[in-house]
């Protein structure tokens, strides 16, 4: 029983989570900030179930409320994310300037499969090797630069097939892209 409990706690930095909670307790909207800080601190930039359960117990927040918040905001992830992030804008302006083609190209380059249900509203998939996460967003707010792609937190505007290819080549994949 004891060992099971301590083993469970090893999946995240309990002291860090405690300090984040202590820092924010009592502030309105504290949950969002806590979740964001904790996710940033996690090695694979995601919120494992154990962390959510721990935060729920520690802050006396219902589990379903936490789940609601985590699944509502696109910035939270329940699955491990890759160290590279590629984010393609699928807003109206970017769509009319061909962001679907860019998305398809990026998926092909990264060896990702399209959903069976076709295109979903928002997408977040990680390559099987766990190196790169490809996401879509509804709008970057940079419509004048459409189509917009973010690669490892750098925003590229006026993207086309060639420039996307170049940007994707900067990804740290531990080897050249085949």
């Amino acid at each position: 029983m004891q060992s099971a409990a301590s083993q469970r706690l090893q999946t995240f930095d309990q002291a860090f989570v405690d300090s984040v909670i202590a820092e924010r307790t009592g502030r309105p909207g504290a949950l969002l900030g806590i979740l964001q800080k904790v996710q940033e601190h996690q090695p694979a930039q995601y919120l494992p179930t154990e962390v959510l359960e721990y935060i729920a117990a520690k802050t006396a927040t219902p589990l379903s409320r936490i789940y609601g918040v985590v699944t509502f905001y696109a910035l939270f992830s329940l699955a491990p994310q890759g160290k590279n992030s590629v984010c393609i804008c699928r807003g109206t302006a970017c769509h009319t300037r061909g962001s679907r083609d860019l998305l398809e190209q990026a998926m092909m380059r990264l060896g990702l499969q399209q959903d069976q249900d076709g295109e979903t509203e928002s997408l977040s998939v990680t390559t099987p090797d766990g190196l790169t996460t490809l996401r879509t967003v509804a709008c970057f707010g940079q419509c004048a630069l459409a189509p917009v792609v973010e690669v490892n937190h750098t925003i590229f505007g006026h993207m086309n097939e060639r420039s996307l290819q170049k940007a994707l080549e900067t990804l740290d994949l531990g080897g050249p892209l085949s």
Partner: peptide
């Protein structure tokens, strides 16, 4: 507080706990 709404937009669902 078993229930809450998970997800967003057309993907919203009533969820129990996590």
């Amino acid at each position: 507080h078993v229930w809450d709404i998970g997800g967003r937009g057309i993907g919203s669902r009533v969820v129990a706990d996590l």
